[in-house]
């Protein structure tokens, strides 16, 4: 028996390690380093209905133990994704999460409707992108707005619905409860924290949008605390993410109550981060005599 075998929203995962949206393309970018079918799942680059060229200017900025990004959801759009990327992504035998963002409720609904036409495993609703001017994170900052988009997408989508939350919400536990009440099947948290950088030579913000999204190990303790509080408050499954670099980090999120984790920035620093995390979790189960990793979920 594979001690890492788990399920998320009724979907079988080989292991609880999922590539985070926006850090793994559509699954093919790291083929040079490892077979992505070994992952528990892959969450696609965030899609918007009509696609986007993304943001102008600087998009990446390293910070102490982290990085700011302002990509701005550069993506091919839902229709082109379905035509060009979906068949290749589906051929990978990891669970397939499709991340869907939007600028309006109508965008989300039309995108979700189009995605009803394909055989993905989990729809990850992105109400947390900090880098787009309209919509995006705005839907995840306000509990009523979040509940509305979640309930309307849920009533229309045939796929299990994972809602990705922003840590910038005034109260992430209330937001999580609002999404649960609105029909979310699960929650993933956290997306990036709003941050900024200033070019002191130019006396200007580094990013055109001024604010960008902070990720990496710098945010781990805050993300872990949020996952812990949310997992205690809701009954639906929680996927934890935020600065996971090692199997110890991943284990911390599982002990905090996440039933699976997502890994993002670590893959940028080291393409083999996820295979190493999976191996570390496997060895942990062996050395602790766990029949299944689920035994430690929520241990803290």
């Amino acid at each position: 028996m594979n001690p890492l075998q788990t399920t998320l929203l009724g979907v079988n995962l080989k292991n609880p390690v999922i590539a985070a949206s926006g850090t793994f393309g559509f699954g093919a970018e790291y083929l040079q380093f490892f077979d992505p079918s070994m992952l528990g799942g892959i969450s696609s680059k965030g899609l918007t209905l009509n696609g986007s060229q993304g943001n102008e200017g600087v998009r990446i900025w390293e910070t102490p133990s982290g990085m700011l990004n302002s990509i701005g959801l550069e993506n091919p759009g839902v229709r082109r994704f379905i035509a060009e990327e979906y068949p290749k992504m589906r051929a990978i035998s990891a669970a397939m999460l499709v991340n869907l963002g939007g600028h309006s409720i109508e965008d989300y609904l039309e995108g979700a409707e189009l995605l009803n036409g394909v055989d993905l495993d989990i729809l990850e609703l992105n109400i947390s992108c900090p880098n787009v001017k309209s919509g995006g994170m705005a839907f995840g900052m306000d509990e009523d707005l979040a509940a509305e988009v979640v309930s309307r997408v849920k009533s229309l989508s045939r796929h299990p619905l994972l809602v990705k939350l922003t840590p910038n919400a005034p109260n992430i536990v209330s937001l999580a409860l609002a999404c649960e009440d609105a029909g979310a099947d699960g929650l993933s948290l956290v997306n990036t924290f709003l941050g900024m950088a200033i070019d002191i030579g130019q006396k200007k913000a580094v990013f055109r949008n001024v604010n960008a999204g902070l990720s990496g190990p710098a945010i781990l303790p805050i993300a872990l605390s949020m996952v812990h509080r949310v997992a205690k408050a809701v009954k639906i499954p929680v996927v934890g993410l935020g600065g996971i670099m090692t199997w110890r980090d991943a284990l911390s999120f599982l002990m905090a109550g996440a039933c699976a984790v997502q890994v993002g920035t670590a893959s940028f620093a080291d393409p083999l981060a996820m295979p190493q995390i999976i191996q570390g979790l496997r060895l942990y189960c062996q050395s602790e005599g766990l029949k299944n990793i689920a035994e430690i979920v929520g241990a803290v």
């Binding site: 393309g25 600087v58 990446i60 990509i71 940028f268």
Partner: peptide
């Protein structure tokens, strides 16, 4: 270009 991954995943280095 500035880039995070080098592998084509982060889209930090997009050029028009």
């Amino acid at each position: 270009a500035r880039m995070a991954c080098g592998a084509g995943a982060c889209l930090g280095c997009s050029c028009a």
